[in-house]
Design a protein around this nucleic acid. Structure first.
Lengths: 112, 112
DNA sequence: CATTATTTTCTCTAGCATGTAGAAATCATG
DNA sequence: CATGATTTCTACATGCTAGAGAAAATAATG
């Protein structure tokens, strides 16, 4: 009966990044994390749009931190997973795991 | 650099269902499989719309089978994963696994 | 046998949610 | 003032959802 209950695929990745990065999760950092781990060419606009939507759904909260003393070190907006965020993540992981359970995804490179 | 390369979240589930069901994968059956495994209330329209999109992207092919001799046993349109479909699945699984690797998703039910 | 019911499956369409892209604005330091 | 890191805005493309309705088969009935 999922109405607004289920995560989009990019939302899923972003939420995982926020969880992983902990206190160090802010837009640019999230972008880099996903780019490095998945090899995708993630645009910053996509990340913020998604973070905003997650915040609107109550799956993350954001707080403005103090500027850091480096070149271009302006204040960062850092994000944190909420309880509802964990729940959403758990559901998403569970749903996928249920569907994958016991499956072997064929390697299209192997002899057919 | 994923342009049309990445799977939506429901596309991911549907593709997994098609792989799992093999020769027995057609609309209603796919719907039931996802509903039972994930507990979601999947509508049939969503399934067909998604299967059509996957077909348009070349990730599945469809063939019309013969009617079966049961009440309401009209011809089914059955779907099959293509090589590109396997690749897409592998990518999706890999991307998620990379993001999840070593992570423990907190249980929001536990004492906070 | 002809007609109507029922069952299973598939098709269509419209509206909302998510994802993508790039340019511009902020706020810090050199 | 120049430069660097970050965030904001905005418009459009793609994916998701819902529900009603059309087909194609067998079953039931008079």
């Amino acid at each position: 009966m999922p109405k607004g209950e289920s995560l989009g695929e990019f939302e899923h990745l972003v939420l995982l990044a926020v969880l992983r990065l902990g206190p160090d999760s802010y837009g640019m950092r999230v972008r880099r994390e996903i780019a490095e781990r998945t090899g995708r060419d993630v645009t910053i606009g996509a990340v913020y749009a998604t973070l905003d939507r997650l915040a609107a759904k109550g799956l993350v909260t954001s707080t403005l931190s103090d500027p850091t003393p480096e070149r271009g070190g302006r204040a960062k907006r850092s994000f944190r997973l909420t309880g509802a965020g964990s729940e959403a993540l758990n559901r998403a992981q569970h749903d996928l795991a249920s569907m994958v359970e016991g499956l072997v995804i064929p390697d299209p490179g192997a002899a057919r």
